[in-house]
Design a protein around this nucleic acid. Structure first.
Length: 285
DNA sequence: GGATGCCTGTGG
DNA sequence: CCACAGGCATCC
């Protein structure tokens, strides 16, 4: 389920865990995670980590000797550090460190993906080379955002989640950014004003910053049960919007559930600020 | 554009 | 029990 902030936290954790250490053994189980890739090459990922970059939701490892690894967490993937001998549920691949620790790639649903390849070819992988701008790694101005999304004929939220336009936003942070920007998820991208593009760019950075703050720490929090919902609209259908009190709606877009406040995110922006209360077609599930 | 499949876990 | 889950690919 991880989106850009969660993957970025995973990256920072991995960099810290591997700093000054060496991978003495790497092993990967025979699972769908490797798809068509050469799973046996995973074992050659040894020694020092030279760099670990993130593009969108992809992690790109470079180990000494020019060995590379592309990793994607899918919905339920995560990297965990444990002392050797501690069993990890759904561990699919492991790095054994000279410190006696083990870094596991655990993934219950197997939607995650790994592909070992020469480090020089990481950015040439199909999945990676087609990614759009990364708001955190590369920056994202209002103009760049408009350039990336403005030509889309999809609904605004669907376009935001198109990794080939802007990369890193998933269902939650797309919804959160649109709420922060006061833009309805079903708006047509071509209809946005310059001021709206600017608000959306700011909102994307704010949502990512919030996510980074929330997800800090060695143990990924996004899969823990019992965690309270800290998002502004995501998962809040049927409850009052914190800003205006209107009932948060949910509906389906592109096969995913979208949440928004019909009052704060008008589908048809008023020319002047609305002064009465409007009728909202709240759809609840 | 939309629907479906991939997997397993969890919550209503 | 069923519906749904923060992703992605593939099909029409």
């Amino acid at each position: 389920m991880p989106e850009l902030p969660e993957v970025e936290i995973a990256r920072r954790n991995l960099v810290r865990w591997l700093d000054g250490r060496r991978v003495v053994r790497a092993e990967a189980d025979d699972t769908r995670v490797f798809r068509g890739a050469r799973r046996q090459d995973f074992a050659s990922l040894q020694g020092r980590l030279e760099s670990l970059e993130r593009r969108g939701k992809y992690l790109l490892f470079t180990f000494e000797g020019g060995r590379g690894l592309m990793a994607h967490l899918g919905m339920t993937g995560r990297f965990l550090r444990r002392p050797e001998g501690v069993p990890v549920p759904y561990s699919r691949a492991r790095f054994y460190l000279d410190s006696g620790e083990v870094i596991h790639f655990a993934d219950s649903r197997l939607f995650g993906r790994m592909e070992p390849c020469p480090a020089s070819r990481l950015y040439a992988l199909d999945a990676v080379k087609e990614l759009g701008r990364d708001p955190l790694a590369e920056g994202l101005t209002a103009g760049q955002l408009q350039e990336a999304l403005g030509t889309s004929r999809q609904a605004l939220k669907v376009a935001l989640m198109d990794q080939g336009r802007v990369t890193g936003l998933g269902n939650i942070h797309a919804a959160e950014a649109l709420y922060r920007a006061g833009l309805h998820p079903a708006r047509a991208p071509a209809s946005l004003s310059p001021a709206e593009w600017a608000r959306l760019a700011d909102a994307i950075h704010a949502s990512i910053a919030f996510g980074l703050e929330e997800q800090q720490g060695d143990e990924p929090a996004y899969l823990e049960d019992g965690a309270e919902n800290r998002f502004l609209v995501y998962g809040r259908a049927g409850t009052p919007c914190a800003r205006c009190g209107a009932t948060v709606e949910s509906f389906t877009q592109g096969g995913r559930t979208t949440h928004c406040c019909p009052q704060c995110q008008p589908l048809h922006p008023a020319r002047k600020p609305p002064d009465g209360r409007r009728k909202t077609a709240a759809r609840r599930r």
